[in-house]
């Protein structure tokens, strides 16, 4: 893609993101309408409920969608690059099942506590990734081994989850919402807790993307260029886990964003890890914000699980990309 084309994609993305952000904040459907919400920022008088809705619900939720979309898709992209495997995603590496198990434990020890859930799911994600990494260090980091290890760790943690729910069936209610994924119970406090970790991790990823990209050339060539492959892989896996763990602790299990978004971007002829990362951050957030808005507006006041909308919109698009790329190559 020519330089102009690349720049255009970024600019279009940023503008769309700003538009989606504003729509998510201000579009109203019930008795509190768009006008009422806009009044809060720009008008002189506004109702108390409009103010509360904007500040306590809309702002945290939209920020969460922005952060989680960016975090999950960049995490997925880094994993796919480091492991040279388009099927890699936070879910496949066991992060989701690790977080899920720990969320369940949080539900038992500290029932109904959103803060405990957030902390525990984060810890679970890191534990799962560390397990996968340690096993792969011994068994090897080939594509096959990585995927299989991720499957094994996921099974292990899921078995743990199922065992616990047999003994504590009521703990599952806390976890059910987590499994489905969604942003309906996001609070400003939760967002502010996850924000520093996500931002810092994204900064580190951008700083290290040069090294990470060299891993694609194989360990020997990368070493020849001055990169320590083992060290780079360890750091990348850890940062991906922290990114995905933070996101998952906020929005539950939204597997789609970390797998499909990076793959779409990799296929749209955009070269270079730096450029792809930028697109992941922009378009990952954009996609999640749009799907979140749809999930709450279509059947207001009933919410459709956002994971459903992500798949319903994203999967056909991805299939179209696969088909059209195939034609281009031929």
């Amino acid at each position: 893609m020519k330089a102009d084309g690349r720049r255009t994609v970024v600019i279009v993305g940023i503008l769309s993101l700003i538009a989606a952000f504003l729509i998510s904040l201000f579009i109203g459907n019930g008795t509190v309408g768009t006008g009422d919400l806009l009044q809060v920022l720009f008008g002189s008088s506004y109702s108390k409920s409009a103010y509360i809705i904007l500040t306590r619900i809309r702002i945290p939720r939209t920020l969460a969608a922005l952060l989680c979309g960016a975090a999950l898709s960049s995490s997925g992209l880094v994993l796919q690059t480091v492991l040279d495997n388009p099927l890699a995603s936070p879910g496949i590496i066991g992060i989701n099942s690790g977080a899920g198990l720990f969320v369940l434990i949080a539900g038992i020890i500290f029932p109904f506590s959103a803060a405990a859930r957030q902390l525990f799911s984060f810890a679970g994600a890191v534990v799962a990734v560390a397990s996968v990494y340690l096993i792969c260090k011994i068994a090897g980091f080939s594509k096959m081994t990585l995927v299989l290890t991720g499957v094994a760790i996921s099974s292990l943690f899921t078995a743990g989850t199922n065992t616990i729910t047999t003994f504590y069936p009521n703990a599952i209610t806390d976890k059910a919402a987590f499994n489905l994924g969604g942003l309906s119970s996001v609070s400003l406090q939760g967002v502010l807790t996850a924000l520093p970790c996500i931002v810092i991790c994204l900064v580190i990823i951008f700083a290290k993307q040069g090294q990470i990209e060299l891993l694609l050339l194989g360990d020997e060539t990368a070493s020849g260029l001055g990169v320590n492959p083992e060290h780079t892989r360890k750091v990348s896996l850890l940062i991906s886990a922290l990114l995905a763990g933070s996101a998952v602790s906020l929005c539950g299990l939204l597997g789609f964003v970390g797998l499909i978004v990076p793959n779409v971007i990799r296929r749209i002829r955009c070269e270079g890890l730096l450029y792809r990362l930028i697109l992941c951050v922009i378009y990952g957030s954009l996609f999640l914000i749009i799907c979140d808005v749809l999930s709450r507006l279509i059947f207001y006041p009933y919410e459709i699980p956002v994971g459903l909308i992500l798949s319903a919109l994203g999967a056909p698009f991805f299939i179209w990309i696969l088909i059209s790329r195939r034609k281009a190559v031929r």
């Binding site: 040279d84 050339l217 194989g218 020997e220 060539t221 260029l225 001055g226 270079g272």
Partner: peptide, 24 residues
Amino acid sequence: SYLPQRVVSADMTVKMLVRHGRYP
């Protein structure tokens, strides 16, 4: 600089590969 025996056909263009030579 080091050219190993086995080189990887990564998903990038030739020009991109050569540009990586400037990394150090």
